[in-house]
């Protein structure tokens, strides 16, 4: 059993997480045969945790996409019900090219703004706990003391914050613009999805 090390966690946070939104959009256009996008993402993280070392990975984004693709292919091969055409379709998949995504462009301040915006979406108590813990860098015990609540309540709020932020990142994360470009589904109309913000 490999438990993720501190270094690997930092590496995932720095190099993988920012590409997750884009990966999800890409996956949502593929035949996944019995798998959810969520499943593929979780399996992919598991593989990245299990790697002996990551120092040789020059391009983490491409690597992430390749890992996800291997997860999809394995599920397809295992399922044995898949038609030949689906399999060749996936195998001929081109991992999307390395456009300088917004994550690469959005350095420094913009990224901080995004972090601030995400924190702002949390429910009030949860947000207060998370702000004290992350912005003011208090320990969970100190947060409990400051707010006059129990440590286990603080822990619960932290768990909720991590869960909400994880799904915020998945669907509106650092690759928002890339995600908007990578879509070929014609059925949804822009009106239905609220793109007409000006009105």
């Amino acid at each position: 059993m490999t438990v993720p090390s501190h270094e690997r966690t930092q590496w995932l946070a720095r190099w993988i997480l920012p590409h997750e939104g884009e990966l999800r959009t890409w996956l949502s256009r593929r035949p996944l045969v019995g798998l959810d996008v969520d499943d593929v993402v979780q399996e992919s993280y598991a593989i990245l945790v299990g790697l002996g070392c990551v120092g040789h990975i020059r391009n983490p984004r491409t690597y992430l996409f390749e890992v996800a693709k291997s997860v999809v292919l394995m599920a397809l091969r295992r399922s044995q019900i898949v038609s030949f055409s689906t399999l060749t379709d996936v195998e001929s998949l081109e991992v999307p090219c390395d456009a300088p995504g917004p994550d690469a462009i959005a350095a420094g301040r913009q990224e901080l703004e995004r972090i601030a915006t995400f924190i702002a979406t949390l429910p009030p108590k949860c947000r207060e706990v998370f702000t004290l813990r992350k912005v003011h860098e208090l320990s969970q015990r100190e947060v409990a003391h400051r707010m006059g609540i129990s440590e286990s309540t603080v822990e619960k709020h932290m768990g909720k914050a991590v869960r909400l932020l994880a799904s915020a990142i998945a669907y509106g994360g650092n690759s928002r613009i890339a995600a908007s470009k990578a879509c070929e589904d014609e059925r949804a109309t822009p009106e239905a999805s609220g793109i007409r913000l000006g009105n």
């Binding site: 995600a179 908007s180 879509c183």
Partner: peptide, 9 residues
Amino acid sequence: GAAVAASIA
């Protein structure tokens, strides 16, 4: 997918 992308955009 398009709706997601559009709302994100």
